[in-house]
Simulated assay, not measured.
Amino acid sequence: MKDLSTIEHIKHNKALTAFSCVFIVVFILLGFWQIERAGFKASLIQEFDLEQAKAPKPISSSSLQWSRVYLEGLYDPTQQVLIDNQIKDGKVGYKIYTPFYYGQDQAIFVDRGWISQGKTRNDLPNINFKASKLRIIGSLVKPEKEVLAGDELLTNDWPLVSQTKSPSVIQDAYEKQFLNMVLILDPGSLFMNEHVALTPFVITPTKHYGYALQWFTMSLVLAGMFIYAIKRES
């Protein structure tokens, strides 16, 4: 009789039952989705490690993300870009993007490292240097897509201050077409500023597993609350 009473209470509380069942299923699906994301990123990290272990090769149209490459050409220090809101060791600063021209009129943005912000937002750091033809070595990265807001993604005076790392946006300030990837200089390179270690992802597989555990825990908590509410009425 008690089991029958519980079933009757479940039927009587249709809204609570529907709400609980739907969100329990949603939380479980989100948990499995996070596990899937963790596995996907783990495979990409393995690919990253393999690419980084290889000796640098000449850059080409077949060069992949995270590949170590070298190229010969010339920097243009007169038209550099400061990537805004870059934090290093708790300090606010910029990433330095410098255009590098190589091959048959080809261009790529080179990440020359991090530099701290001045005393005020208007006090931009001095990033000028004397350019000469040279060979540079680094790793290719494709900046992750960002959610961009606001009208002024780029300022008007050199060096430009950019709210995005995306080459497709930054190149609007130039007459040339740039490669859709950025070259991060090897540490110790000539004209390299403070180096920031290259990491393939901000959110690691471990974090995704942690998020999955949170979703599964929430589904269990909701299931427990539903069972408690029904038992209390029984």
Rank of each mutant, 00 (worst) to 15 (best):
S132K: 14
I127A: 07
N156H: 10
C21T: 15
L4M: 09
N156W: 05
G150K: 05
V92Q: 14
L179T: 11
Q86C: 01
D84G: 04
S60M: 04
K119F: 05
R112E: 01
S116L: 05
L16A: 14
Q65C: 04
I45S: 00
L183W: 08
W114F: 05
M192Y: 04
F191Y: 15
I137G: 00
S166V: 06
E72S: 14
I7E: 04
M1S: 10
A197G: 05
L30H: 05
Q104N: 15
K95N: 13
D84Q: 10
L222A: 04
K133F: 07
E47D: 12
M225A: 11
L153Q: 11
K133G: 13
L179S: 12
Y101V: 09
V110P: 01
L29G: 07
A223G: 14
K41D: 03
P77C: 06
P77M: 02
G73F: 06
P56S: 03
G150H: 03
W158M: 10
L148E: 09
G113E: 12
M192I: 11
V141G: 00
R112F: 04
G150F: 03
L190V: 13
H195R: 07
E47S: 12
W158S: 08
L154V: 12
Y94S: 09
L4R: 11
L198S: 07
D186V: 09
H208W: 04
D111A: 02
L154F: 10
A197R: 12
I96C: 01
V92S: 15
D105Q: 15
V161D: 07
V81T: 12
K91E: 12
E175N: 14
A15V: 14
S63F: 02
D3E: 04
Y211R: 02
L30N: 05
L16N: 06
H195I: 03
D151H: 08
E152H: 07
D172A: 15
L74R: 13
F40P: 00
K231A: 07
L185C: 07
G224E: 04
L213M: 13
I28V: 14
P99A: 10
S43K: 04
K95R: 14
Q163V: 12
Q106V: 06
Q163T: 14
I83A: 07
N126R: 10
Q80E: 12
D3I: 12
S63P: 01
E194A: 14
K145G: 08
F48Q: 03
A53K: 09
V141E: 09
P56L: 03
L82Y: 02
Q86L: 05
L154Q: 08
V196Y: 03
F40K: 14
V22K: 00
D111F: 01
T217R: 00
Q46T: 13
D157P: 01
S43C: 00
S234P: 00
I137K: 08
I230E: 01
S219C: 06
K14Q: 10
H9C: 12
G90E: 10
G210P: 06
A131I: 07
D172Q: 15
Q65S: 04
I28H: 02
Q214L: 08
K133V: 15
G188H: 06
